[in-house]
Structures are given as C-alpha cells and as structure tokens.
Design a protein around this nucleic acid. Structure first.
Lengths: 184, 184
DNA sequence: AACGCCATGTAAAGCGTTACATGATTAT
DNA sequence: ATAATCATGTAACGCTTTACATGGCGTT
C-alpha cells in the first residue's frame, strides 16, 4: 500500500510521464521510496484502471510521444483518504546487523572493510542532503506550507545518515581499537 | 541473499527447529531482519537441499516431533564466504516521508496523530533495547569476542530509535508549533 | 467450550528485481 | 562509429505476505 501513494504525491505536485517519474524517483522522493521504471509503468497502469490518474498524450518533435499522467478527482480523494489511515512502522532490515552477529564465524578484516565502505556511503549521502538543504531551504524557519514536507523529509535523511556514521564509528572503534581515528 | 544467512548465523549460535527460529526472529535478531514462520520453513528446505544444514528429528513427549536443524561444514563455509562479500546498503523505505510530502493534499491532524503514534512506538522499542542492554551487557567495555556482535547490533538499534524520536519531535514542533512539549 | 501454544507446512496473490526489447535523436 | 538520453514497455523469476490447514495438549 505505498508505491501508488508515492506516485500520487509526486503527480499531485506536478503531472509527469512514467519516464519523468522514474527520474524523480532517482532523485528527491526516491531517497525514501525506491522504484524502478518497470515498476512505475506497471503501477501507473493499475492506477489508470482504478481511475486515479488519466494519461494525456503529448506529441514532441524529435522525440517519442509521451503520456503525461494527471491525477483525477478520485485520485486526490484517495490520496487524502490515505493520509488519514494510520501507517505501519516499516521493519528495519540491516544486513550489517546480521554480519556483526556473524563476526565469530567469519572474516573480521572483510567485515571491517565493509563497515568502512558503509561509512563512506553514509558520508556521501549526508553531503548530498546538506547541499540540498543549503540550496533549497536556506532559511528553514521561513519555509512555506508547501515546502514544509520536503524540508522535514530532508531533516529525516540528514539525521539518519548522521546516525549511520555514528554507528559505523562505534563499530570501528571496537573492531580496530589500536588505531587512532585517522587510520581507522 | 540474506534470509539464508540470517538463519545460518542463528543456527551457528545454536541449533534449532523452524519453529524455534521463528520465535527467535520475533525476538532478538528479528528486530533487524524480519521473517515469518512460513518463509523460514521454505528457506530451510532450500538450505537443506543446498547441504548447508541437516535436520535431526527429535521426539518429544506430549508434543509433536521437531526437526532440529544443524549447520554443516558446507554451511559454515558459506557463512564465512558471505562475510567476505561486500554488502549493499539497503534502500530506506519511509512511509512517513511520503506522508510528509502529502501534507498539502491530506489531513494534517491525522498525519500529526500518526507521527505521535510513531514516536510512541520508537519510545517503546528504545525502552526495550535499553533494558536488554542493561540486562545482557551490564559492562559494555568487557564484552567477550562472542558477545561483541550482539552488543554492537543493540547499539545500532538504540541509536536508530533515538534518531526516530528526534525526527518525530522536529516534525511535531513544526506541525503543532503553539503547544509546549508536554501536550504536543 | 473456547482459546492459545507447539509444530509443520501448502496455496495464492502481490510486490520487486533483473534481463530483454525497440527505436529515434543527440553528443563525443 | 559509439554511447548516452528519451520513452515505453514485456517476461521471467524470486521474495514476501496473507490465508488456509492439521492436530494434540494445556489453561481458563
């Protein structure tokens, strides 16, 4: 019960083709809800059948036609109804947690490298979020009602990445205790 | 590429039946990798075919027989090999993030309630983790090599729940700005 | 009598990933 | 020439969830 609604939100903000949606999902909203273009096309088909969206075929020169999907009144109703339904907390899935439990049965050096790689990935993502925050929300206290959601989502991303880094650091301090911070 | 390995880790720590595993997955390791009993039975079947585990049928009185699965040498090899393969960072999935973006199209009061419910859930989970930490790892600096993984996983859980609470608080401060902390 | 625990599964449906497919335009 | 971008899909497979099924024992 969710990709449909993520797409509805994205289309409610601005109508788009499946292709456009796929790119948006690679960028902003997709950091919190991944979807491939194949999936998006499939779900858009279902949503059209349900009457939540209608395609608007737009001819382009030098490029293939595209179907720009627009949210219908029924789609907006569904979106509003969905916000009123309580959400379930999604279960955490951490391969790293499983690997940490596997420490006595595996290769500590390889696991350590894996943690370092994760730390780097978290740092990159954090840098990207911080840059987005500085560019799109330079004065967080002054965000408009329309922008508030985007800002809060970004804050969630920033907090999560910082926590990821902090966890990796705690792990590395235990796995590589003799090193100092620089070469850990 | 993951439930197999979570099961291998759990069985390497202690042999168990599918039913036992399902209960363990409800408790400790399952906080970081959920699995239902139906899924576990199916995967155990596959793992037996692959030669990673062997069943040991144990008769019980007043209860149905159970198949206690034991990790084979091949299973241990696979487990060790898996720890050496780099892991992929699992994509975040946050229904709350999507809902925040839906604020302009939905019911703010309902979304606020949802955030409050999530905050409570995070607090409960945090309390549970803290209690586990106090009970099983009273002296974190003295954990043995065998316990280290469990401790670090618990730390990850604690950090994640604290971050979840902090995020909810930031959201509530924006959605219910006039209230003071107590009745927010 | 009804419910919950122990113990193991099957079946169906939906969700998600990977691979494959097409065909035109634009940049290197 | 080659690769990337635009644009839309199908097919196969695997993973996950939900529902159904069985059957004995102990508790309220």
């Amino acid at each position: 019960m969710a990709l449909e609604h993520a797409i509805l939100v994205s289309l409610a903000e601005r109508s788009a083709s499946g292709y456009d949606l796929a790119r948006r999902f690679d960028a902003s909203i997709g950091h919190f809800w991944k979807a491939s273009h194949q999936q998006i096309y499939k779900v858009l088909g279902r949503m059209e059948t349900a009457g939540w969206v209608t395609p608007d075929v737009v001819a382009q020169d030098g490029r293939p036609d595209k179907k720009v999907y627009v949210v219908t009144a029924a789609g907006r109703d569904e979106l509003a109804a969905w916000t009123s339904r309580p959400s379930t907390v999604e279960p955490t899935r951490s391969e790293l947690a499983v690997k940490l439990r596997a420490l006595p049965f595996g290769d500590t050096a390889a696991i350590t490298d894996d943690v370092r790689a994760r730390r780097r990935a978290h740092e990159q993502q954090l840098a990207y979020y911080l840059e987005s925050a500085a560019r799109f929300y330079p004065r967080p206290d002054d965000v408009t009602a329309d922008e508030l959601g985007g800002w809060l989502v970004l804050r969630g991303g920033i907090l999560a990445e910082q926590t990821g880094i902090a966890w990796c650091d705690e792990i590395l301090q235990r796995l590589v205790p003799e090193a100092d911070d620089a070469d850990r």
